[in-house]
Structure formats: C-alpha cells, structure tokens
Design a protein around this nucleic acid. Structure first.
Lengths: 342, 342
DNA sequence: CCCGTTACTGTAAACGTTTACAGTAACTCC
DNA sequence: GGAGTTACTGTAAACGTTTACAGTAACGGG
C-alpha cells in the first residue's frame, strides 16, 4: 500500500507539501504542485480515508439505518438519501435488516467514527419508545409518530392521507370498508388507522362501517387479509390496504377468487410506490414522495453537521390522493398511460 | 467525544486493557472486564471506527459502486449484496449515479481506506474497455461482457437467456419479432442481442424476421420504441424488450394505442424484476436472480479479502425462462396468483 | 544594506486505536 | 526457597494523515 510518504520521497518534497497539494490548500508553488500530482498518479496514490478521518474528525459519510431492504419503498428511500448526500460530496453507509430496537442501537454504535451523521428508520415493532441516542452525532429519524420526543424527524402526514382516502371511498358510495392494518406498535400504521376513523366519522359512519384485518405491510399479509375479508358478512365493497405492498397482495387474492376490481370490490393503497401505476388495474393510492422524504432527511442531517443532535424538530411531508382505476374513477378522466411515461 | 482514554482513566486501568476488553481478547481478569464494560456503557463509549481501521488495516466495509439507483433492479442488487456482507459482519458503502467511467474511477479512489473490497457495476456506455484498477483491493465486477480481462466478474448468461426467449417466441408461431435493444456499448445489451440472433438462426429465420429499435433500458425508451414499432411494415407480432423496464414501457404504449396483449402483440422482457409478475398481463420474461447475483459478487469479494485483486475469474449466473401471460401461454397452466404469493 | 514582507516549504505533534513486548505478582514444583 | 510458569496488566510504537508553527529564501522599500 502506497502512502503519502512514498509520494513525498519520490517527488523530493515533504509529506506536508503532498498533503497540501491534495487538499488544494493555500500556498504551494505551481511547479511543485504539478510534480507532486504527476508522481501521485504515476504511483497510483490516493489518500487513506481512515487516516484522514481520524485527524480531521469528519468522515464525509452519512449512515442510513433501515429495518429492511425489500421492495420499492426502501429502494426509493435510498435513492433520495443518496441523491441529497452525493450532492454535498458525502458517501452513504447503509445498514439494514434490523428486526428490533437492540439491533438498531448496535448498528448505531458500530457507526461511530465511520459517519458524520445518521438517518434512522426504526423497525416495524418498536413498542418501547426509548429515545434514540446517538452520542454527538446529528440524527434524523424517518417515519414513525410525530411526537417521539427524541430526535429530529421526518414524518408522513399519515393521518390526513388515510382520512382523505376514506372520504374518497365514501364519496364513491362505499359504506362497508375493509381496512388491512399494519403491525401493532408501528406508529405509521397506527396513524393511518386513526385517519381512517377520522374519515369515517367525517362521513357520519360508525364502527360498523369498518372491517379490520391485521397485516404487517408485506404482500403476503395483504393476500391473506383480503381472502379473509371475502368471507366476512357483510362483505366490504372496498378494501383499503394501509400500504401498497398489501394492496398488491389483496389484488392478487381477489383475482384468484374471481372477484373483479373495481366493479365487485374497490381496492386502495398507501405510498404510491412506482409499481402502483402499472398494476392491473392501476392502483388508487395515497401518494408519498418517498425519495423526497429520504432527501429531506439527509439534507436535515447535513445541515446539522457541526452542531450535534439538535433534536425534536419534526418535519411533516404531505400526501396526495392518487385516483386511478382500482376504485372506479367516477367522472374523472382515467389515464391510459402511466403518469411517469406521459 | 469520549475516547478509550477516558474509559481507562475512569476504570483505573490502562488503555491497553480497555482495548483488550473490547476485542474480547485473550487474558483479562473477569473483574477487570466487568468493571471496564460497566464504565464504558456508563460513559456511552464505543470505539472509533476510523482509528481502529487505521491500525488494523481493515474497515469491515465493502464498497458498492453502481451506475444508478433507479428501479427494482438495483434495489434487488443492493439487497443481495447487503445480505451477504452483513452475514460476515461487514458494512456496505454505497456509491451510485456514475454516468461515465471517469466518475467510477474517482469513486473508487475515494473509497481507498474506507473499504476492504469493491463490487463495481459499470455504467451503460462504457465504450472504452480499460481495466478497472483497484490498487490492492479485491474487486469484483458485476455484469458486462464475460471477457473484459481485468477483474473477477459475475456475469449473466445473457446470450443463452435471450436465445431461449426467441426460441420460445418462435415456437408460439411468431415470425416477425421486434426487439428493443439496450444502449450501444452496453455489453449486457449486446450479448442479449447476440442471443436473439442465435435464436433466430436456430429457427432458420433470417435478418428480415428481426425488427430492431433502440432503447436504453429505461421505461420511457421502451415506450417510444414500441410506439415506433407499431408503425413498421410488416408490424411485428411479438416485441421482445431486452429488459423488463422497457417491456413495461412497451406495455403502456400498446395499451395507449389500443393494442391488446398478447392477442394482438406479444410482449416479453428480461430480468424478471419483482414487478413483472404483477403487470397486466403478467410478463413473460427471462429470469435473472438479481439479488443472488449481488450476493455472489459480495461473497466473492469477501473470500478474496487477504489476497488483493486476483482477477479474471468469471462466474456466470444462469437464467430461466418465465412463461406468464404476456406472450400467450400455449397449453401451460397459467397461474392466477403471482408466484411470490402462492 | 537592512528590515519587513511575501511565498513557499519543512518539522513535528496530534487524532484514537491495536499490539508487541516487557513487567509484576502469584502460584507450582522440586 | 528458588526457579519456572502462569495470568494479568502496562508502556510505547505504530497506522497515514492534517496542520500549527517555524524556518528559509527572495524581494522591495527606505
């Protein structure tokens, strides 16, 4: 491995000068600079990241801790974070598959001295609400309930989004709505559920208008829940899955049972993952700009860099109702070409 | 920031002992160990990654360099790499959006001293075939032509896959096949194109059975290419997009023009991204186990760790023909439930 | 001709760890 | 009771950088 010292010797200068060349710092003669550059490329030298980090106390890296990596949601999230982070010349250290809180904490510990800041999304079932503690690192939490009281957070307007969807469904004439919920303890899911109740009571409908089945945000759970709902009495006329992955599962279950969407049963989702517009039928859903959310989280961390974990600023990202064909499309023009292509 | 020295002082031992406790090394008395552990957690200490890397000359991190992050292909890839890497206690440093070769080289330089090995996927148009040079780091290339002659590589059996698809199409009676190609200079695309020719000549069909339109692996390009093909004379009876993203675009274009799939025109793709089975109609495609490919690349890097870049071992990942409904499904049972849910 | 300034370069200390080596005490064995 | 061994602990050198500080030479002005 070739170090700054090798370059210095070969170029006949001191290591300080080489260092200055590589940090294009203040004063080094043009000739010297050129010579050093030449030697460096000839030798294939590039500065050692760890050594540099040690002394400068910055790593030019942001850590991203995720519960999982499966599906388009996380893909979009990473894309957003990566984009924001790269724009500022930072790297992205990803750590995923953290099933519970203990794993998240240990992942955070392992990142000390490797990152300058953290974006953390907690796993599904983070029952206990002990605050995330990051030492002196800026930390932004992604998703979850608005008032966890620990870190800065970027959260989705889950409640308003779900409420809008229910109102939409009711406006289409649905009076029996099946809702596929998320895992207990997941605050995004719980917030969405509250929104559902809001929407129902807006419409003057009671609890009996609501049929609830448990899911866990996976396609498979949506599949099972929808099948279960078909046996309910009265059968719901619309199924609202609290995320798109479960809506996809539900769609498959309905197709398997020969139920037509939307004419027999309407289906709606939440998130608007890229796939949603390509489904059959295209999925009516609540749009969350996932990659923008990631980007905002990253930007927030970046902006805190000098100052340590400044905590408790909550940023809410809005949602949009995306009316497509899976719930029928009353009156509105129904696009044949997916939005992303037109 | 709290260091090993603080812990040592507080626990009344030397820093060497603290270090030994944290590397659960050979000989330290049980009492001492307990005391150090206690102090460490009380102080919230965790070892500094950069410092540790500097002296041990390992970072416990693998670098992943990708051209892009958009879509399910990369998402699956990351998932595979992450999984393999985590299993060995390594981290994952991701760097993406490298439009050309120069950016890749600079990304690789920036990773020196931050990673112990590299998995690199070159961007679309890497015309020039200058070898990837990684210094002393193990390097595995992902995708591209089998014989670049530089690094170890994991490549897809592109040619065989495309050939199998064409034979399938021909067996369904198609004699005019439209192929949406990838960007010129992209060797995956070129290999697939060779496979198409192989398949055609297997069937005794000549160049006139082939209608070619240029794409670049994006949905939008598939959309445009398909629209263009509809105006061709003779019009193809099947469209084979050289990846799934373009097939999705093509599907949208056909729907927009009122062409029915598969009865009017058959559509096929390549990759079998997760979305493929949920499309309307479910997409017949060539399956590549993308996440397994990522995992194999990572495993390969990990296995080279001590030895530097050992080069030129090419591993070929096989493909499978996935017959779904977008090309008609002659005789075979056509599943109503996506495979991933059944 | 001397001094102050400018422009460049070198010396050496630090960053937070790991680990070879040396040291010490207690214990075992003859 | 002395030597050898064992079990533990400390000292200090390294890892590859950055950067404060000091040093040197050239130059311009008085």
């Amino acid at each position: 491995m070739i170090t700054i010292r090798d370059v210095a010797r070969e170029a006949g200068v001191s290591i300080a000068t080489v260092s200055r060349v590589f940090n294009n710092a203040e004063a080094v003669a043009t000739d010297t600079r050129r010579e050093v550059r030449a030697v460096a490329t000839r030798l294939g030298y590039s500065p050692h990241g760890a050594a540099r980090s040690l002394i400068t106390r910055r790593t030019a890296t942001i850590g991203l801790i995720l519960p999982d990596l499966y599906g388009e949601f996380f893909s979009e999230l990473i894309r957003g974070v990566d984009h924001a982070v790269r724009a500022k010349g930072y790297h992205l250290l990803v750590s995923s598959s953290h099933a519970d809180r203990a794993e998240v904490d240990s992942a955070m510990a392992l990142m000390r001295g490797r990152v300058d800041g953290l974006v953390v999304m907690l796993p599904e079932r983070q029952q206990e609400q002990t605050p995330l503690i990051s030492g002196r690192l800026p930390l932004v939490r992604l998703g979850g309930a608005p008032h966890n009281g620990d870190a800065d957070a970027i959260v989705v307007a889950n409640r308003e989004g779900a409420r809008a969807m229910v109102r939409h469904l009711v406006s289409l004439g649905h009076k029996h709505i099946g809702v596929i919920s998320g895992a207990a303890g997941n605050s995004d899911a719980e917030e969405r559920m509250s929104g559902v109740r809001d929407g129902l009571s807006d419409a003057g409908l009671g609890e009996d208008a609501l049929l609830r089945a448990a899911g866990d945000f996976s396609e498979a759970s949506g599949f099972r829940a929808a099948r279960e709902m078909l046996r309910a009495n009265p059968r719901p006329t619309a199924i609202f899955a609290l995320n798109d992955a479960m809506a996809i599962g539900a769609l498959s279950a309905l197709r398997a049972e020969g139920v037509r969407v939307p004419s027999d049963i309407a289906v709606a989702g939440f998130d608007d993952i890229p796939m949603a517009q390509f489904l059959d039928p295209p999925l009516t859903t609540v749009r969350v700009d996932i990659s923008a959310m990631g980007a905002r989280a990253a930007t927030r961390v970046l902006s805190h860099l000098g100052n340590g974990p400044s905590g408790s600023g909550v940023e809410i990202v809005p949602t949009t109702l995306m009316v497509r064909r899976s719930c029928g499309n009353p009156g509105a023009w129904s696009p044949t070409i997916p939005e992303s292509l037109s």
